[in-house]
Design a protein around this nucleic acid. Sequence first.
DNA 1: CTGAAAGCGCTTACAG
DNA 2: CTGAAAGCGCTTACAG
Lengths: 349, 349
Amino acid sequence: MKKRATIKDIAQIAKISSTAVSMALNHRPGVSSRTREKVLSIATELGYQPNYAAKSLISRQSNTLALIVHNIADPFYAELALGVEGEAARLGYSLLIYNTGTSPRIEERERDLISNLRARGVDGVILSTVSLDDPNIELLVEDRFPFVLVNRLSLDPKLQTKMDFVVLDNLSCGYKGTEHLYRMGHDTIAVIAGALNASTASLRTRGSVQAMKDLGMNRDPKWVVECHYIREEAYRAAKRILSAQNCPSAFFAQDDNMALGVREAILEIDLRIPQDISLLGVDNTPVTALTGIELTTITQHIRQMGITGAKTLINKIEMNNPHMVNQIIMEPEIVIRKSCGFYPKGYVR
Amino acid sequence: MKKRATIKDIAQIAKISSTAVSMALNHRPGVSSRTREKVLSIATELGYQPNYAAKSLISRQSNTLALIVHNIADPFYAELALGVEGEAARLGYSLLIYNTGTSPRIEERERDLISNLRARGVDGVILSTVSLDDPNIELLVEDRFPFVLVNRLSLDPKLQTKMDFVVLDNLSCGYKGTEHLYRMGHDTIAVIAGALNASTASLRTRGSVQAMKDLGMNRDPKWVVECHYIREEAYRAAKRILSAQNCPSAFFAQDDNMALGVREAILEIDLRIPQDISLLGVDNTPVTALTGIELTTITQHIRQMGITGAKTLINKIEMNNPHMVNQIIMEPEIVIRKSCGFYPKGYVR
DNA sequence: CTGAAAGCGCTTACAG
DNA sequence: CTGAAAGCGCTTACAG
């Protein structure tokens, strides 16, 4: 690779000190406009680019952020990453992506990734995969390493006031979804839950249960099954449920991906959606809008979550004020399509 | 943020020189096992992490790669990124993601991103969005900056022997797809082309035209329309085509995303797939497998392309042999589902 | 306005 | 085996 010009090269050509060159390049006052111009013209001629490592070494910052996701190929995380990257770029930061994958020891994997990215001198990290009692968070707050939780949060009581986060109101999400199904005429519904060690699934489930109680719906623990946000698991769970006695008339899947698994199970035994079985998802991923899918779902403004997360993190990094915490909770909205019945004029009850 | 221990701190505690500490930490020979152990134990006690910027400054490498995509939320690019990130991580590299977006001045945007990432001291870049005569590539080869083209390539003749790439055999993709449609009984087909300034679309189109010629199919320039890989454009083009006289009986969309746009147009006027109109896509994105979609499509092993791209790039970086070029061409395969008719026992003709 | 010196945290010849 | 010195490319007080 061609080797790059340094400040010294410029100094030599301009016959001045490298101090002067540095100051000119950084538009500091205290340089005559004559030398400044000379420096600048030599710099562009040489295609001078400051050495990033050297600058980082001095400034103690890298202007790079990291984002940890389960799987960047998952539409939810991809959309999140798009938001984060865009906002980061706008504010002068680059974005490193890390996938935890679906290893069983996810927390260890996460720990290794965090330690890797910290070793790399990243300025801050956005975590979207933490578990309810994630041990890695405590370390970050102890060390005052800038981070923000997006999507999932920790419920560790002693950390409550020390984490920045931007999440959906998942309790409300579970409640509203269940209520919607109730008003469409369903009295017993199956909840296809995500990973219950994630705040998203845990809270959505709690919201559902609360709504069932409030509305006097039938409740039976066997109709809520943990499927870890994995489509295949949701498919199998749905098959099982559909073949049971008195099976529920509606499924509330805690994300669209699992809803698609449930959908396959329903269609496979020639049941119709929504005439025979209703189906509700969460996320409003693009696929749900397709003709023939038309899944009713609960919106998260995923990209906006990414943007807000990035903004919050950068703010935290640059303010360097450890005593200020941003906790942002976004409101879920139902997008009514056809999978729960379609009554444009209102609800059934 | 808590400040981190340095080599000096360790030296002070161990009462030895920082040279010795450095050598011990790096497992260099020429250090007594006694001091080595002392150093190592102090290091772990202090949670010592070497300063990355300082190391980079000396080693002149950052162990980070960059990937430029149009939009990380597009399933194709997301899958590609997954492959790249995984392989990069396996080989000790981190991955920076850059989105060009869909700005009209894409080449300028790309140029800015490249210059940004080079300034950041990235070790190499994977480009997946280059145009046929992309001016940015020449700069990279001139400067011997490590890069590999994935998905799209340049057709600039004087660069042909100087670029590493991993791409689909797009000519064959266009040819095979068209041939498949012909054998399913179609004599005139519409080609919903991607951006014709991309090698993918250009070559697929050329392949299609060649097949039409070879097979004696009807040809009419008005049935090939450039839709820039944008679903909405494909939708509009399909609407227009479907309302024309003697409209083709099949659509060959050059990616699944556009195929989905065509699908909406077809279904909207109550035509059936494949009974009335056949539809063929490219990419085999997950959505195409869903019941009710079941799109016949041409597979790219996208993740594998990402993996191979990363491997090739890292190889190039570490071998530092500018005279060796890797050009990898992957074979397309048709995945037969239901959108072109479904004849498990063979073709119509 | 300009430059010599020190330093960021590390590594690498080079003496001892 | 161990350490003092120089240096990676830059910036930041500090003198002049």
